[in-house]
Computed example of a mutant assay.
Amino acid sequence: MNSWFPPAAKPKPVENGIKARSKRGAIAQTWWSERFIQVLESIVVGGRLQRGRTYARKGQVIELAIDAGEVTATVQGSRAEPYRARVGLAAFEPGAWARVDEVLAGDAWYTAKLLAGEMPADIEEVFTSLGMSLFPASAGDLSMTCSCPDWSVPCKHLAAVFYLLAEAFDDDPFAILAWRGRERDDLLKALSALRNGPAAARDTAAADATAGSTAAGGAAAGGAVPLTECLDSFFAAPRPAPRRTPVPAPSDAVLDQLPAIGVTVRDISLVDLLRPAYRALGRGQPAMDDPEDPLR
């Protein structure tokens, strides 16, 4: 019996395309990229998922760019002209990001993780508590287009983009936040200012204003001052570093920064068990002599 359809055309090979590191099995390696792939696999059916992985592993994606609100890519298919693919996801407004910054800065656990370049495992809960969703919850959260003639959305070209996005998120979890409208440097700068208090925020704003005025003054004068004319001041600090007065804190304050552990001994939480020991150490006495020990 003759088939009504011709065999599928093979994609044209690409030199120096973006290839997925994974050669078989799952592509996502971290929990945050797995969350993203779960959305893809919930909306793609049939062989397009497999063909998308094949495209990603063969290097058929030529370019991939992540910007606030959209991911754009060019994907080489069977035709001479590469296809243009786009995956849109709404970026959060500055006001929404300001609320996220305040919550993240209020918890030393989140701040330490993010400053170390790691994505906190429960960061989704921060967004959820504010009525926001870090990851797309369904296909309805995404706008997807491809210039290929395939009627199905997402097509195999978009699926390939999804898989390479997952690996990009493995390499840099901040790329997820950038897609939602928050660049890494801007986020860390805001967290540092909020953690250090209003004075740090004012210092940051003053430094930005000074830099802008200096740049404007240099432009008005016809450009930057030649190095030979400013050697005496080139390596000097533009202004004295702000003096910080350490704020005394109880010796057990660090326990309040821990995430919820959920471990109990004799119906007493682990944090409450540790607290007397921390207080005793702060007073310079053996922990076993502390009268506040709940197990005494």
Rank of each mutant, 00 (worst) to 15 (best):
S33W: 05
L274W: 07
V45N: 08
I268H: 10
A105T: 09
L134G: 11
T54H: 00
P242T: 10
A193F: 05
P136E: 10
E292I: 00
V87C: 04
A116S: 15
W179P: 09
A166I: 08
E102A: 15
V14Q: 06
P291Q: 03
T214N: 09
A112H: 11
P240D: 12
G223S: 06
S213A: 08
A159Q: 07
D107E: 15
E93T: 13
A80N: 08
I62H: 03
A216E: 12
G46T: 13
L295H: 02
G181C: 13
L191G: 09
S133H: 14
S42Q: 09
A287I: 04
G282P: 02
K10L: 14
F235A: 12
A211H: 04
E15H: 01
M119C: 08
V271E: 10
T111N: 07
W4I: 07
A98S: 13
A199R: 11
K12W: 00
E102S: 12
A216R: 03
L270Y: 01
S3G: 10
A65Q: 13
W151M: 07
S129A: 15
P82I: 08
C148D: 12
A85S: 14
H157S: 12
A166S: 15
S192T: 12
L49W: 05
R296K: 10
G218I: 01
G59A: 11
A178S: 14
L188E: 04
L255N: 07
G140L: 04
S78A: 15
A80R: 11
P250H: 11
D141R: 00
G222W: 03
V225W: 08
G52V: 04
A253G: 08
L64Q: 08
R21Q: 13
V247F: 01
D122M: 07
A241K: 05
S3L: 12
L49D: 10
G282I: 07
L165E: 13
P250G: 11
P250W: 05
L165R: 00
P276D: 06
L142N: 07
V87Q: 08
M119E: 02
Q29I: 12
T128L: 14
A216Q: 06
P82V: 07
K12L: 15
Y278C: 15
M144K: 03
V254N: 01
N196E: 14
T30H: 11
L194G: 07
E292T: 12
D232S: 10
A211C: 07
R180D: 13
V247D: 05
S33H: 07
L134K: 01
T128R: 07
M119R: 10
V265M: 07
S152K: 03
D67I: 00
A166W: 03
E34F: 03
A80C: 00
V225K: 05
L158R: 01
R86M: 15
A85W: 01
I18S: 12
T245V: 15
G223V: 03
G25F: 05
Q257T: 09
S3D: 15
A139C: 04
A116N: 14
M119V: 02
V254P: 00
P294K: 04
D203A: 09
P6C: 02
K113H: 15
K10G: 09
R48A: 12
A207C: 07
P248T: 03
T228N: 09
A137W: 00
F174L: 10
R275D: 09
G69Y: 06
E125D: 14
